[in-house]
Design a protein around this nucleic acid. Structure first.
Length: 270
DNA sequence: AAAGACACCTGGGAGC
DNA sequence: TGCTCCCAGGTGTCTT
């Protein structure tokens, strides 16, 4: 479900309810997510106070004095802050119960998400080798161009690779390549310096615009307050196969790259 | 080292 | 109605 804008929207939504609160209980209804929820969690979290809710790539980081609760939403995860008396439904696998009248609840039908504990999150195996944040200064034209040299993978797969840059998923990869005028099938190693420059620029703006709109709701994404994201209305190519290009009226095509649907304008994207 | 296939899991929609 | 098949916002792991 969520790419970086949806995760960031979630982070902003839950942080104000969590910061400064103390954990009174941990409820696990289904331990088997992508990895089992660690049994040590209650011991780490009970009576501990939440200092901040941060984000690295698509990982949400709930910060405590002695470590970090890492949350990944996978394909179908969502977090809500609810009254602690609200009954759990079928796919509500995990609650972080607070000393207010609230709890943070993870719903994740497909269970590709994860709830993990890290004593030192920067050194965690899933995080330590990640690429730069797309909105940060480390993600720039020099970096992307250098990294892409001699790479024989489709540029779409390349920018979706979290070891190159984090947070760009299937929707925003298609959108960024459309804005850059670059066909998703082009080999990463054949992208020009100018194209790399443009691609970095438009990736940043499309992600920023999506965050501003509260993310993209395709079917079931809702922010932590239950509201959908409104960026779907701004999508220029994703999900628009057979429809006219917004720039040139050519028919948007859909192809499969690396087993994922990709969309592009055959006229605007070279 | 890099690329590609496969794995995990459930639900919704299309087609018959 | 109900069955089967395909697809879905992610990404680690294994094999070439």
């Amino acid at each position: 479900m969520p790419e970086l804008p949806e995760v960031e929207t979630t982070r902003r939504g839950i942080e104000k309810h969590l910061r400064g609160k103390t954990v009174s209980d941990v409820v696990v209804r289904q331990r088997q997510l992508r990895w089992p929820i660690p049994k040590s969690l209650a011991r780490h979290l009970k009576t501990q106070t939440i200092n901040a809710v941060e984000r690295r790539g698509k990982y949400l980081l709930v910060q405590f004095d002695r470590g970090t609760l890492m949350i990944h939403l996978g394909m179908s995860g969502s977090l809500r802050v609810l009254g602690k008396a609200v009954p759990a439904e079928k796919h509500d696998h995990f609650d972080l119960v607070l000393n207010s009248d609230k709890c943070l609840r993870l719903r994740d039908p497909r269970r590709f998400g994860a709830i993990l504990w890290a004593d030192n999150w920067r050194q965690h195996d899933l995080i330590k080798d990640l690429g730069p944040e797309p909105l940060g200064n480390d993600f720039n034209a020099d970096y992307l161009y250098a990294k892409s040299r001699k790479r024989k993978v489709a540029v779409k797969n390349f920018i979706m690779n979290s070891h190159i840059v984090v947070g760009v998923g299937n929707i925003y990869a298609s959108e960024a390549l459309f804005r850059a005028g670059v066909r998703p099938t082009r080999l990463a190693g054949k992208i020009s310096k100018l194209e790399a420059t443009t691609l970095v620029e438009v990736s940043k703006t499309v992600l920023q615009e999506a965050i501003k709109q509260g993310g993209t709701t395709l079917r079931d994404f809702t922010a932590s307050d239950g509201k959908p994201g409104y960026f779907k209305q701004q999508l220029a190519v994703y999900g628009r196969e057979g429809e006219p290009c917004l720039h040139c009226k050519a028919i948007i095509k859909q192809i499969t790259i690396g087993r994922r649907a990709s969309y592009y304008c055959p006229k605007c994207q070279i």
